[in-house]
Structure formats: C-alpha cells, structure tokens
Write a protein that binds this DNA or RNA. Structure first.
Lengths: 348, 348
DNA sequence: GTCGAAACTGTAAGCGCTTCCACTTTCGCC
DNA sequence: GGCGAAAGTGGAAGCGCTTACAGTTTCGAC
C-alpha cells in the first residue's frame, strides 16, 4: 500500500524492510555499485517503486562528502545573454549529472549570506564578474571553494572564462575610422563591467593607432533609458559639435539611440553611424540593422561548467584563463555595408 | 592558523574546539537560536572567521528535515520570458532564504533521472507546463512532493499559476474583425503548449462571436524560421487566397512574418495585419511596431515561488489556481492605431 | 562430497549538523 | 544570605545515506 498523504516519506529502511533485504543492498542496487543478485535487484526496484521512494540527497551528500552540484552566481537575468549563458551551463551540468543552484546578486538583500549558504551546498562556484566584488571572491577562495570566474579580470591562481572584447572593439572602431569617420564617441560607462572597460580599451587603441586623440567615454548606464536621454543631448547640440559615430557599450543603448536620433531627424548611418554589442534579436529587426558584436554566451556557460568540474575533481590544478572569440556582425547602421568578419581568438 | 589548502574544510567541531565551547553552543550562535552569552558569541564568531568555516548545508538539511530550497523545472531558457520568470522567482526565493535549483528539460538526456534527483534536493518543485508531461508530474505528486504548475492546464488538487490567454486573444481578434478584417488566420501550433492552445481558443471564440467560421490553425513551430517559411507560402499564393490578418502564437513568428512579407512586397498593416504574443524587445523596434500581448513573466515567477512556499510550509492546503492579467499592446502592425488596453483578470 | 574462490549480503560506523534534556551558573528579590 | 527562576552550556541521540569489513552463500573443479 502506497504511503498516505500524511505519512513521512519513505526512507531506505522502508525499502529494505519491504524488500526483505538490508539497507546496504538497497543502496547498492539504487546506486548500481557493488555486486547484487538479479533477484535482489528486482525486489528492491519493486519496493522502491511501490513506496515512491525518493532518496534524500542531503544524506548521500553527507555520506559521500560531495554535493554533485554547482553554484552559479549571476548579477541579473535581464536580456538574453544571461539566459543563454545559463542555458549552456545547465546543459553541460545536466549531461554530467551535476545540479545547478542559481543565485542572483542584483537586488539580493544579503549577498554575503546567500553566497555562504550557496558555498555550503555545492562543490564549487562559478561567479560572473558583474555579480560579486573581488573581496567576496577572495573570501570564497580562502574557504577553499573551487571557483571559476566569468567575464572577470584575471585573478592569480583562479580559473577564468571570458569572451574577447578589446580586439573586436578595436577592429570595429578601425573600420569606422577607415571609412572616414572623424569624431567618434564611446557611449557607456567602462566602470560598469570589466567587459565594457575592455571595449573602451579597444576603442581607445584604435583611435591611438590612427593618430587620433581619445575622447572620454560618455559614462552612462547600459540601458535604453540612458540611450534615449543621451540622444536628447545630442539632438540639442549643433551639427558641428556632434560626433559622427557612436560606439555603444551594448545593444540596448545603441537601439535607443538609433531610434531617438532618427526621430530627431538625424540620419543613421549617413550623419552618424552607430554600433552596439551583444547582437540581441532586435538588432536585426530594427532598421537600419544594427552593427554589433556577438558573444558566444552558451559556449561561455558550457566552458565555465567544464572548467569548474575539472577543478572540483582535481583533474587539473593549474589555473586556466580561457578567452572565446567574438563575431563582428556588420549591418547598415555602421555605414560600411553588410558582411561579417571573425575576430582572431587571442592565444588563451 | 588558517586551514591550509590541503586540509579538509573546517567543521563545527573545529570551531567548537577553537572557541573552547561545545558544538551545541556553536550551532546556537551560528543559527541565532537559543540563549547565548555575548562572550560565547564573540568567541564563536572569531573562531569561525579564523577557520573560514562554511557550514555544510547537507548536514543541516538532514538534521532539520528541510532543504530550504526550491526546484524549478523549465523547458528551455531561450527568449526573454523564461529569463524573466526565473528572475522573478529567484528574487522572491532570495528574499525568503530559499535556494533555487534549476533543471532544464529540453535536451536533457534523462529528464526522469534529473527530476528524481531534484526531488531529493528540495522541499518542493515548480514545473513549467512545457517542461514535463503529466505522467512525470503525477509521479512527483505520488511521492508527496509539493508542486506548483506554471502555464499548465489545471490538475485537480494541484496549485497552478498562469497568465490569462483566451480572453486577450479573443479581445485582440475581435478588434481586428471590428476593423474590417475578413479572413484571419491563426499561425502557430496549438499543440505546442497549453498557452498557445488557449490563444487559439480565444481566437476561435472571437470568430464564432462574429458569426464567422473558424479556420484550422497553421500548425507550425513557434520560431523565426517557421515564420519565414510560412511567409514564402503566403507570397506564393494569390492575393485572393491570402488571409488579410495573421494572429501569431508568439512574437518570433510574427516578426519573421512581418519582415518576410514586407520584403515580398506585401504591405503591413494595409494588406495584411499581423499580431504577436509576448512583447519581446524587438517588437517595439521593428517597423511597423508589432501589436502583441505582454505577459507578466516576473510576476508569474514570483507568485509561483510564493505559492510553492505556502504549500511547503503547510500554511495553505487548499489548491489555488491563479491567473494573471495580460496586457494588450497595440502598435501599428494591426492597423487599428496605437493605444493600450488591459484585459480584465478572470476571477481566480 | 570437499574445498577455495567468487559472488552476494548484512552489520555497524560514520558523515556534520540540530536539538532535547539535564545540568550549572547567574541574578533578582524577599 | 537564601531561594527560585532564568540564562547559559554541554552531552548525546539521531537525521538517511554510503561503505569497509565480515560473514554467508554459491559454484566450479577436483
């Protein structure tokens, strides 16, 4: 008779009793370890099914000293990037029998506490650079928690995975300069994340390589609102003061600018060229199409999971810093005609 | 002296020894339960910090018979919806001290196994309708696992949360009919999810209410590719055969159609009106703007988390079926002028 | 049949934490 | 100063599982 709704859930003892075997044998059957007779196997399976037995993972974790779970700390889940990252991560984890426990820091009332709790539940943690400060990361390292950093500046002795930013930004900027743009501006606050600072670095490098002076970045948040606000400012300026090209830190910013400028009577790409970053879906539906840079987010997640697992199992002890190639997606908003180009992956 | 890199992580015994107190007192300090002297508290805090002590969650879970974790089963993470849902969920969970363990079924090599493993790690599970078949859900219920269904047809005795679909679809369709459209078509396979079937039901209801016959839905997947393919088919047909309005099951489909039709020389909304569902970012950047229906995804996640928690704690035993209101977002693609309207929330 | 090895099964000792209970100390008040 | 209550502390059991070890069968070969 199946356990009624009020009875406590079945334990391995209940299964053993019903199968008239010891809990040791039940465990061996369920885990597929050790030698078991076919008869015993059948009886256990039958009993387990009959009792709707669900092994309590905490007990196993305690006994085997392993959680078989990864922690993933993200700043946010807005936009498609983190979703894709998570997707790639979860996929890898699922294929390798690891659970994924997610923690989002943005808006979290007590990230410290959440993090410690997380650390006690998993075998290792992947941290996105925008999610946690360095102190929190060092704290974890001190507690000997295996860690992999994503989109985070390199930390000595710590694994990291990120996508290439500076070279792509430089290539993109050079292209604009080569096509006659004279007065470029970087839109987005480099302080908002490591990736953005790298993009600004690439932007700067291109300008310097062309013998230009490097303007200060327009330090605004990476949001549509900020883009619209900044567009107003541009529209209020005279044509002479206005830049003739905007390299934006992400697509939200670029899309909002694109639209607001057009609404204000400024032609894109004729008067001003605009580029973004991330290649969100809207980038290919807006017109003119938004030139942007695509990051392999799912692959980033996948790789992070793999690196963490290597670290947890101890099959690798030397730290690795992987850098994945991005892809420049040329569309009409940059005025240099459509086409595509791959950036060379730096030697990791 | 802090534990070296090779030593096993500190346990509560190590902390107790260092603080010269019993593990009972250490536990009380750490959990903030029971009376403890200020002196003891200080010594424990000091020792814990010195040893970088991270409590092993599995041991606590075993002792208190609670995981303080929720399982979340999603079909996928593509598109912004699931990300938003997850966001809302995680937020609520974080605020209430619950961890979130994520499982994605699409592409999972062994969903059954993943699900059972998940069930052993959490206090309850939220399942998205597209993620799991009814048998799997019933399996969990039999094992007495608290469950909340999201975007799933009602199951007796089971909590559920979804957003309203039929009424919005009916309202949207009526509007098109009222503005003179004669030959509407529903694009997207109702079998692909409960929500889509509800949208088709609303579409059908509107047609019947206007005394029209209800055409079979165009049973295609809810993807951009499918939209583009179907557009080709429409372009190949004569103007007479062609519908003059397309109610699409989601925005991807609608956007791809919008663009492909325009490229093929068919004017939207003049020749054909097009509507989507979800209000993705691209819907407001494409031109003409895409008329669509917005679902409160974050709120859906939040509410699901809350309902599950109520179930877990036992503060509610009667099943609830919540239905959240959606919002019709009128843009130019439907040819009836911009504006907005809220659908009335059905009585839950 | 007998014997040794191999196959199978059971006993029991933990894993690290919480918490009941009993015990000691402190304290307010008569 | 003595007394009862309250505050603080520690001992030890137990949460449900894995697994080392020992014990029991089974079985093939002599």
């Amino acid at each position: 008779m199946p356990s009624g709704p009020t009875s406590r859930p079945a334990t391995i003892y209940d299964v053993a009793a019903l199968a008239k075997l010891s809990i040791a044998t039940v465990s061996r059957v369920l885990q597929g370890t050790g030698p078991v007779s076919a008869k015993a196997r059948a009886r256990v399976d039958q009993a387990a099914h009959e009792l709707n037995y669900v092994p309590l993972r905490a007990a196993r974790s305690l006994a085997v000293q392993r959680h078989e779970a990864h922690g993933l700390v993200l700043p946010d889940l807005a936009g498609p990037f983190y979703g894709d990252l998570l997707m790639g991560y979860e996929r890898w984890a699922g294929e390798h029998g690891q659970s994924v426990i997610l923690t989002v820091t943005h808006g979290n009332p007590d990230p410290q506490r959440s993090l410690r709790d997380l650390a006690g539940r998993v075998d290792g943690i992947v941290v996105h650079g925008n999610a946690l400060g360095l102190p929190a990361v060092q704290d974890l390292r001190r507690a000997n928690v295996p860690i992999v950093l994503v989109a985070h500046p390199p930390v000595t002795g710590c694994d990291s995975v990120r996508s290439e930013s500076a070279a792509s930004a430089e290539q993109l900027t050079s292209r604009l300069l080569d096509h006659g743009r004279e007065n470029l501006l970087f839109v987005g606050d480099p302080a908002s994340s490591y990736d953005v600072s790298e993009r600004y670095a690439g932007f700067s490098a291109a300008l310097r390589a062309h013998g230009r002076s490097v303007p200060e970045p327009e330090r605004v948040p990476l949001t549509e609102d900020a883009g619209a606000t900044f567009a107003k400012k541009l529209l209020a300026a005279t044509a002479v003061e206005r830049p003739d090209g905007l390299v934006c830190a992400n697509d939200e910013l670029a899309l909002a600018l694109l639209r607001s400028l057009a609404a204000g009577g400024i032609a894109v790409p004729e008067d001003i060229v605009v580029t973004g970053w991330d290649d969100v879906m809207a980038a290919r539906y807006v017109s003119p199409g938004l030139t942007t840079v695509r990051q392999p987010m799912a692959e980033l997640g996948r790789l992070a999971a793999q690196r963490l697992h290597e670290r947890i199992t101890g099959e690798r002890t030397r730290a690795r810093n992987d850098v994945l190639a991005t892809q420049l997606v040329l569309r009409d908003s940059c005025g240099t005609g459509p086409g595509e180009a791959r950036t060379a992956p730096p030697t990791g």
